[in-house]
Simulated assay, not measured.
Amino acid sequence: MKTRYHLDKELRFLTMAHLFPNIHVYPFVNVFMGMIPCKSDEKIDVKKHVIPGYEGYKLPTLIIEPRNYKEKLPCIMFFHGGGLILKAAETHYQFAKWYAERTHCRVIMPDYRLMPKYRFPYAVEDCYCAYEWAVANAGNLNIDENKIIVAGDSAGGNIASAVVFMARDRGQILPIGVLMSYPALDRRMDTESMRKYTDTPVLDTGLAKMYWDEMLINGLPQHIEYASPMEAVSFSEFSSTYIEIAEFDSLHDDGVLFAEKLKSANIPVELHEVKGTCHGFEVAFKSRIVRESLDRRIAWIKKTLA
């Protein structure tokens, strides 16, 4: 792995980090990932539910909420990243708990199905089912169905965007906002950052191609925007959006170009490039960069919900 990218000093441990290029390794990795707990603490309650997923699947789902809040709260649907092949990591649970604590929201986090066994559309349809369930059960969940934000990192950002298009097309209440960090949004991979960042830490162009190829191995769907949101014919009615991108990331331009699409459709959008970072920098969740990033996101969430 080359080290020519000037990562922030707190992120240099990621220089040698790289995801596996063989998709068939990941089910074994997920055996261990599945052992990572998301536990209640002095500030946060974590409850496990099983809700209806795609095609009758019983979808394990976490509800993460601030302690001692009995009133109706806004909701964040949090779709974890991991290339649609990895289960949620400690980082995802930490961010979900921060969102719940600092924005006074109930966070709903579905454990959607993964490749290689379940390729498109299983992950996104599971997550859309979770969104529908949250809206339909808003009263029991004590959430405001008109104040739901969908959020996700990397592949989770892909899902969050797709869920908005699905809700729009299917006549569902739309989320009030979308929050994405280094999202994967365009299966065509025809961007300058895809050509430039072929050897970056954690994720590079070759790995991104592997994920897209595996995701769409059965061909392109009729609604291509449910898989590749950048290819949507229309961005009208899309929700107000926050996008954060890493400086040294093959997915860098996905976020930039998606923001431009939204602006052209007169959709409010906030775009931030985080200097000195690579894909997956959230894993350094004790770093100054992540603390600053979290502060920006919390401010945007509060503003959007207000």
Rank of each mutant, 00 (worst) to 15 (best):
H223Q: 09
E132G: 11
K286E: 14
M210A: 11
A155K: 07
K43L: 13
R67H: 06
V107L: 01
R113G: 02
E273M: 08
S287L: 05
S264E: 09
A138L: 04
R188V: 13
M210W: 01
M189H: 00
E10C: 02
D295A: 15
V150A: 04
E90H: 11
W98T: 14
D213E: 15
D295S: 15
A100M: 05
I243C: 02
D153M: 00
G53D: 07
I149D: 00
H272E: 09
I63W: 04
A232F: 02
M166C: 09
V283C: 05
L185V: 06
F28V: 14
R188F: 01
S287P: 01
G157K: 02
V50E: 13
A130Y: 05
V107N: 07
A96C: 07
E214P: 03
M180I: 11
T200R: 05
F79W: 07
S228V: 02
N140T: 10
D249R: 03
I44W: 00
A88I: 09
Y99G: 07
I36A: 06
G56R: 10
L179P: 00
N146P: 08
Y112A: 03
I173V: 09
Y197F: 04
D249V: 08
L84E: 09
K302E: 13
M166W: 00
E10G: 01
A151S: 15
L207F: 07
F258W: 08
P183T: 07
E244M: 15
R188P: 06
V274Q: 12
Y242W: 14
P60T: 01
L7M: 11
K39D: 12
I173W: 08
F165V: 02
S236N: 15
P221N: 11
F285H: 12
F235I: 12
H80I: 00
T304L: 09
P110N: 03
A136G: 06
Y118C: 06
L257P: 00
V163G: 04
F13E: 10
N146M: 02
A88K: 13
G82H: 01
R102H: 08
I159G: 07
R188A: 14
D249F: 04
Y242T: 06
S234E: 04
F79H: 13
L220D: 15
T304E: 09
G276W: 09
T3E: 14
Y93D: 05
M33N: 15
V202I: 05
E132H: 10
L114Y: 03
N30Q: 10
R102K: 14
D169C: 03
R288S: 06
R168Q: 12
C75V: 01
C105I: 05
